[in-house]
Amino acid sequence: MSEEPEGDPEPTENISGGEAGGGPSGFEPAADPATRAEAVVDRLGERYWRKAYGGQAAFECLVRTVLSQNTSDKASQPAHDALMERYGPGGPEWADDLAASVAAATQDDLAETIASAGLYNRKSETLIRLAARVLDEYGGADAFDRFVTEESPGTVREVLLDMKGVGPKTADCVLLFSGGRGGVFPVDTHVHRIARRMGLAPADADHEAVRAALERDVPAEKCGFGHTAMIQFGREFCSARKPACTDDPDACPLADHCDQVGVYPETGDVVDPAEAPEADTTAD
């Protein structure tokens, strides 16, 4: 059986935050946004939900985010549900702690359980290794959750990035969806593309540089919502190959804030912002 994801289309709604945790954000759009990035997030708030995040169990959030790597929510969500049904509370492999259950799993069984997420051999190996480390260093999922929610964000991020198989986006998602930390703006492929295309970050910025630009220019309480809403905007309007503006200049609700770096509506051509000949490497 192939490990490659099947390229499932994204769901209508962004479910990357899951159903648990978070609530209404309480912020209102600024009368006079301090930066263009804040103005973009406020405009997204007129179209999508404004939600605060936090409250997910940290190890389960880490599992969910690993499963989402290199695939869609539509593919990773069933894998998460199957894993929880088998290794979570009440499941046949439950060991009184999710980290203990996953650490004790055989790789073949875990890989079969999460197969819908794609790359299941690599992901099952990663999850077992992460579970063993959480058990060894924290004693279990509950203590790991306390570490993520109570320790300083910088320390938590440093520790997460030291875990093999955890990259910046995964670490930031755990900080956001579990820790509920303000000022954390995870950067996935949608956010990376849109921020550079709009001119909110340098055209040649890598994911970490985009994150730094957005966390600098978006108020802390709006970063989590900005992440999820920008993903939804990318799915609906600012896709990689055919953004809405290539069909109709007025079709994009953020047209007045966009530099269209690498997008040429007159010809329909679309290139990575870093490859645009006129790209400016200094964002506003």
Results as ranks from 00 to 15, higher is better:
residue 246 T to Y: 03
residue 47 R to L: 13
residue 172 D to K: 08
residue 153 P to Y: 01
residue 169 K to A: 05
residue 271 V to D: 11
residue 201 A to C: 06
residue 239 S to R: 07
residue 18 G to D: 09
residue 26 G to R: 04
residue 103 A to Y: 02
residue 16 S to V: 12
residue 121 N to G: 15
residue 284 D to Q: 07
residue 122 R to E: 13
residue 258 C to S: 01
residue 105 A to F: 13
residue 117 A to P: 08
residue 91 G to W: 08
residue 224 G to T: 14
residue 135 L to F: 06
residue 5 P to M: 11
residue 2 S to I: 12
residue 133 R to K: 15
residue 125 E to M: 08
residue 153 P to H: 04
residue 181 R to C: 06
residue 107 Q to L: 03
residue 125 E to A: 11
residue 189 T to F: 04
residue 216 R to G: 15
residue 3 E to N: 13
residue 169 K to P: 02
residue 259 D to K: 00
residue 209 A to N: 03
residue 3 E to P: 02
residue 61 C to D: 07
residue 72 S to C: 10
residue 104 A to D: 12
residue 232 Q to T: 14
residue 135 L to M: 15
residue 245 C to R: 11
residue 243 P to R: 10
residue 279 A to P: 11
residue 185 F to T: 10
residue 113 T to M: 01
residue 89 P to I: 02
residue 202 P to W: 01
residue 49 W to D: 12
residue 72 S to A: 11
residue 214 L to F: 08
residue 89 P to M: 03
residue 211 R to K: 15
residue 86 R to Q: 11
residue 26 G to M: 05
residue 13 E to T: 14
residue 232 Q to A: 14
residue 228 T to Y: 10
residue 123 K to C: 02
residue 151 E to H: 14
residue 266 E to P: 04
residue 45 G to T: 02
residue 9 P to Y: 14
residue 222 K to M: 09
residue 143 A to N: 13
residue 49 W to I: 00
residue 187 V to N: 04
residue 150 E to L: 04
residue 107 Q to I: 04
residue 184 V to Y: 02
residue 205 A to S: 05
residue 136 D to E: 15
residue 55 G to S: 03
residue 198 M to T: 03
residue 135 L to T: 08
residue 150 E to G: 03
residue 38 E to W: 00
residue 282 T to I: 13
residue 108 D to N: 08
residue 111 A to T: 08
residue 113 T to L: 06
residue 2 S to F: 12
residue 70 N to C: 15
residue 54 G to A: 12
residue 232 Q to Y: 14
residue 202 P to K: 11
residue 60 E to F: 07
residue 166 V to R: 12
residue 23 G to Y: 01
residue 102 V to I: 12
residue 200 L to N: 04
residue 105 A to R: 06
residue 95 A to M: 05
residue 227 H to K: 04
residue 21 G to T: 09
residue 53 Y to H: 14
residue 155 T to E: 15
residue 144 F to T: 07
residue 122 R to K: 14
residue 223 C to Q: 05
residue 100 A to Y: 00
residue 94 W to V: 02
residue 25 S to L: 14
residue 253 P to S: 02
residue 1 M to T: 14
residue 256 D to M: 13
residue 73 D to T: 15
residue 52 A to L: 07
residue 35 T to H: 15
residue 284 D to F: 07
residue 205 A to W: 02
residue 165 G to V: 05
residue 134 V to M: 02
residue 278 E to C: 01
residue 236 E to K: 08
residue 12 T to P: 11
residue 23 G to D: 10
residue 125 E to V: 12
residue 241 R to L: 12
residue 159 V to A: 10
residue 49 W to R: 14
residue 16 S to F: 08
residue 124 S to E: 04
residue 256 D to Q: 09
residue 273 P to W: 01
residue 70 N to V: 10
residue 229 A to C: 13
residue 6 E to Q: 14
residue 199 G to S: 01
residue 226 G to M: 08
residue 55 G to D: 06
residue 55 G to I: 09
residue 147 F to H: 09
residue 233 F to W: 03
residue 139 G to M: 13
residue 30 A to G: 10
residue 168 P to Y: 05
residue 199 G to C: 00
residue 23 G to V: 07
residue 91 G to Y: 11
